[in-house]
Design a protein around this nucleic acid. Structure first.
Lengths: 199, 199
DNA sequence: GCAGTTCTGCACCGATCGGTACCAAAGTGC
DNA sequence: GCACTTTGGTACCGATCGGTGCAGAACTGC
């Protein structure tokens, strides 16, 4: 992914190719995506892939980062909502939408990329688990701030609320992978946030 | 898996071996579980595996059925609860427990067995999606009955309630795979069912 | 004993896995 | 032009994938 002014210039756009790789990992999971699948989708050779991204694991990490800034951008956006309740509503609405985008795989890369794995996928699986925990921690931080501001009741437990909201989002991802529509999932989100705060 | 009085008797217990296979699929997923992993855990040779269970896909199906009657028995149990609300509460409490059993893999075989997959795991993935849909349909049937009995309000939509409850359970499975404890998940379940019916 | 049947262990099949060596092509600065 | 650097395609590496052929062991019925 490094650029150099000297030498033969790269013939492909690393960002475009990374987007293609992201889609393959998203649809097939880390272990289910072979280098042949990836290079064919990206339109580059194995050698170019290794030169530009390191190896399969690093490519996966970079694809996840790309996901975070693309389809997964709803997370950061939701965290900026003015009240805790709006954070939760925006987060779950964003999940319902991002998990059912028409031209992209159903579900969430962070969930189905590697939920269970054999030896070769263990690193990717742990990496994804940390990624999800990080997102949940961000929600918890935001809710803690809301408690401090009086936006949430003083007795409320920010971590528990974050876990609650993230559990719904995780469920939404599984439902989307099974074919649920955005409307289906928005209704679930509405039902889950009917009483607030949930814990 | 067929038994015959004639010929050399089988040296292993098919149910015990199936239990071991179930655990491997549960922990590593369909694609992540190699025949070597499976045969080593089951304590039998490849040839015996194929003679007794057909092939890897059929073994997976049989492992899922075994799961349904073992760790997943909470589903059928919950469906027998007297009221719709008790069905939902029992279902989610069962999920929280079954997804965090001490000596077994964390999470749900029906979710992490194959949520995303490459070519070789596509059949297993679709099979699991159908399995989850079947469970959700059973919940829907039970809630429809509750509407007919006046246990749920006449305007309630049984399918939407079933989707809501199943989404929580799916999220619980992902959370468990990420290390959440039974108590964590029971709190989420309590919060999700605080107002009833949810939709 | 014998014939018939089934199970087991091992070696092996072609295909594919992630990853790399090699080399010509294509660019840079001078 | 030249020396140097980097890219891309192909062919290949050992290892592993799911699945099978074969030979012999272990049982039944007679």
């Amino acid at each position: 992914m490094r650029t150099s002014s000297i030498g033969r210039p790269r013939e492909f756009d690393p960002e475009v190719a990374l987007e293609k790789a992201m889609v393959v990992f998203w649809a097939q999971g880390y272990e289910g995506a072979s280098l042949t699948d990836l290079t064919e989708a990206m339109g580059i050779s194995r050698k170019s892939l290794y030169a530009a991204y390191g190896n399969k694991e690093e490519l996966f990490r970079k694809a996840l980062k790309h996901y975070e800034q693309g389809p997964g951008a709803y997370v950061a956006e939701a965290l900026r909502a003015p009240t805790a309740r709006e954070v939760a509503m925006s987060f779950l609405a964003g999940a319902a939408r991002a998990n059912t985008l028409p031209a992209l795989p159903a579900g969430c890369l962070g969930v189905q990329g590697a939920l269970a794995a054999g030896d070769t996928g263990r690193t990717a699986r742990d990496f994804l688990a940390e990624w999800r925990a990080r997102g949940q921690a961000l929600l918890g931080d935001r809710f803690r701030q809301a408690v401090a501001e009086g936006d949430l009741p003083a007795g409320a437990d920010p971590e528990k609320i974050a876990r609650y909201v993230m559990t719904i989002a995780n469920g939404v991802a599984v439902q989307a992978a099974g074919g649920a529509t955005c409307e289906d999932l928005q209704q679930v989100a509405d039902a889950a946030l009917r009483n607030w705060p949930p814990a």
